[in-house]
Design a protein around this nucleic acid. Structure first.
Length: 267
DNA sequence: ATGGTAGATGCTCTA
């Protein structure tokens, strides 16, 4: 039996941070990398880059300037051709593939959920409405289409638990931790997923994957949030071996405000 | 209460 390490990272511009992607490969040696905010149109995707890093299997969906997701893999996969167009915006926030591993196929979803703007009010802020609608659509879709042996990763832009943020009280009205968002994300997860990171880190322990660019003393003040997630279906729980939150990546030169996260599965 | 930074873009948006 082998192992499969699946990493997820909001890279915040793939072209700018190809050297950091190489560093990620060197430090974590993942078998699969799911990226968000690639910010590169498909025609400009650095096609030879992933193969040069040892990832010959690539799927990507990008657009000019914003959003964009990509899956890079050492193991063969089949891309899903028929993915929902969430909120009918065509805005490149989701990719799915079926990984071919010895124990059988694993379905992998890579999501970049809308950030939602600054005002946590659906009526006053169309970006917040979009975020809630996106999560509701995803919830409905997974309620009817969740496959066995599924892994869902990505920047979900919601920190659901009290200790997923530096101050539960102070962030209750801050987009990413409002009760309505938490309820929405919880409903999505409850379509059939286990929170793989919290399997390892107790609920009363702080766990963050993002620290704002606006706080240069990010480690000292440690005002982080857990916006990046790894969910698995219960049938994969016996295979779940380890997790990593690569916090030191937040100190890499010209890095993303998110850090890479990964899990190890026995396959 | 405010503003702080970053990336892509092109005289501003998104995060």
């Amino acid at each position: 039996m082998g192992h499969l390490r699946i990493a997820t990272w909001n890279i915040n511009s793939l072209r700018l941070r190809m050297p950091l992607l190489e560093r990620l490969v060197g430090e974590l040696n993942p078998d699969v990398i799911c990226l968000q905010e690639t910010k590169v149109p498909d025609l400009l995707f650095p096609a030879g880059g992933p193969a040069g890093l040892g990832f010959p299997h690539v799927s990507f969906r990008g657009m000019k300037g914003y959003n964009g997701v990509a899956i890079l893999s050492r193991v063969p996969f089949t891309p899903h051709e028929q993915a929902p167009d969430w909120c009918e915006k065509g805005d490149c926030r989701h990719l799915a593939v079926t990984l071919s591993v010895p124990s059988g196929p694993i379905e992998l979803h890579d999501f970049y959920v809308p950030a939602g703007g600054d005002i946590p009010d659906r009526a006053a802020n169309v970006k917040f409405a979009h975020k809630l609608d996106f999560v509701a659509e995803a919830t409905a879709w997974f309620a009817g289409n969740l496959a066995p042996r599924s892994v869902l990763v990505g920047d979900l832009n919601i920190a659901p638990m009290e200790h997923d943020v530096w101050s539960h009280r102070q962030l209750l009205d801050v987009v990413s931790h409002t009760p309505v968002e938490v309820a929405a994300l919880t409903a999505w997860q409850q379509t059939g997923f286990i929170d793989a990171l919290r399997h390892f880190v107790p609920a009363d322990e702080k766990l963050y994957t993002w620290w704002s660019y606006r706080n240069q003393n990010w480690r000292g003040s440690n005002r982080g949030r857990r916006l990046d997630h790894v969910w698995i279906t219960p049938d994969l729980l016996p295979s779940l071996r380890a997790h990593t939150v690569l916090k030191d990546a937040r100190d890499w030169p010209q890095t993303s405000d998110h850090v890479p996260v990964c899990i190890d599965l026995s396959v």
